[in-house]
Design a protein around this nucleic acid. Sequence first.
DNA 1: CGGCCTTATCACAACAATATCACAATACAG
DNA 2: CTGTATTGTGATATTGTTGTGATAAGGCCG
Lengths: 226, 226
Amino acid sequence: MKKILVVEDDKSLNDGLVYDMQEEGYEVYSALAASPALKIFRTQEIDLVLMDGNLPDGDGYTLCRQMKQIRDIPVVFLTARDMELDEMRGFDCGADDYITKPFSTVLLHKRIQAVLKRAGRNTKQNVYSDGYLTVDFDTSNVTAAGKPLILTPTEYRLMKLLIDNNGKVLTRQMILDRLWDANGNYVDEHALTVNIGRLRGKLETDENKYIKTVYGMGYMWIGGLL
Amino acid sequence: MKKILVVEDDKSLNDGLVYDMQEEGYEVYSALAASPALKIFRTQEIDLVLMDGNLPDGDGYTLCRQMKQIRDIPVVFLTARDMELDEMRGFDCGADDYITKPFSTVLLHKRIQAVLKRAGRNTKQNVYSDGYLTVDFDTSNVTAAGKPLILTPTEYRLMKLLIDNNGKVLTRQMILDRLWDANGNYVDEHALTVNIGRLRGKLETDENKYIKTVYGMGYMWIGGLL
DNA sequence: CGGCCTTATCACAACAATATCACAATACAG
DNA sequence: CTGTATTGTGATATTGTTGTGATAAGGCCG
């Protein structure tokens, strides 16, 4: 569940926001001023900050900058209509969006979703990496020591299967079933042996071993385990 | 210089926007409807789209989605005040900001700056250069060993796409989607193969190879790697 | 240590993916 | 409207991959 921090000095508006956001399914923290907000921000893994532009102790733009420095999470500003100057300052300090009061709950929620989604793009990663080998499963990019590595489709699928079961032994039969025998076509078990060899040849060095042969059983990926 | 595409069916507002943005130092393209907009978008390396929500042929939200699919650049919506529904649809389709009419030039500029800055995390280099090949993406000048190289539009766009993803594999499908029509319009995958060949013929020599084919996957630019 | 089984390596052939070349269709400038 | 450059298409050649067979190397157990 996403954690939202509401920073708004108007008590009733603050309460309203907290209630609304809880209804929308977020875990909500709130603060009435900058300094308690910062404290919460440090201790909780906040995903997004909803912030008023005019806070009593030090304005929100300073707070925004401070937070961004600690950890770069999205900040959405709440600002009164027609405060063009405010808007600009907000963006200057790195705000990700701003919303003019008054606003509806549903709109607010939509904007928050949009901002979170935007931020999520830069953080979400589906990668395997130890010091030497890196595999990006989203783009199918494989690099060894920073240099791109070209794997054939079968080699890649084989590697993915092994990494998905990092530390577990996969029997030859299991691997055959999952990589080849999708439609009942029989393939020589030997094909697996050869492809394991080819994969090793491409990604293992004298110092870096990844695929452990388990005699009489199958193979096991041992990335970052030994 | 940043390239902005203005999509607005109100001719006078369109002209005004174009003028304002040119004053602010952008290179501005404009379209009065969705389909010409899409054409410009495909052929020009647009950095940001300024779009009206109500277009005569197919609404802007559809257009936004199409563009995002081709290449993920920021889209800012222009929408009439109080059109809350519009705003939400805008965000649903991946809009990066929206601005309610009427607005001031200076505010618009600020918002655009903010959005561009936000997107800037993904901004690519403006000049590519290794010892042999040099590409200036601002002026579209390409030189090999100091001598100018003439590329056709498609060759250039193809090369840019590859360089933007230096060291990463781009699948054939990805490239097709981004350089040719992302919608139903069918283009023979073969066209890509041929254009890769032409590009290679122009910029590769016996000693300098740039485009690595990844069998069963696609292609990868390998400038300064390997 | 020596037989027996499992796994590894190498070379090759069949096949599928990609490259190349020539030409036709299209866009485009004058 | 005409000539030219660009881009897509088709036929054919080339290259990369992958399964298979033969052979070598390695582990297991007496």
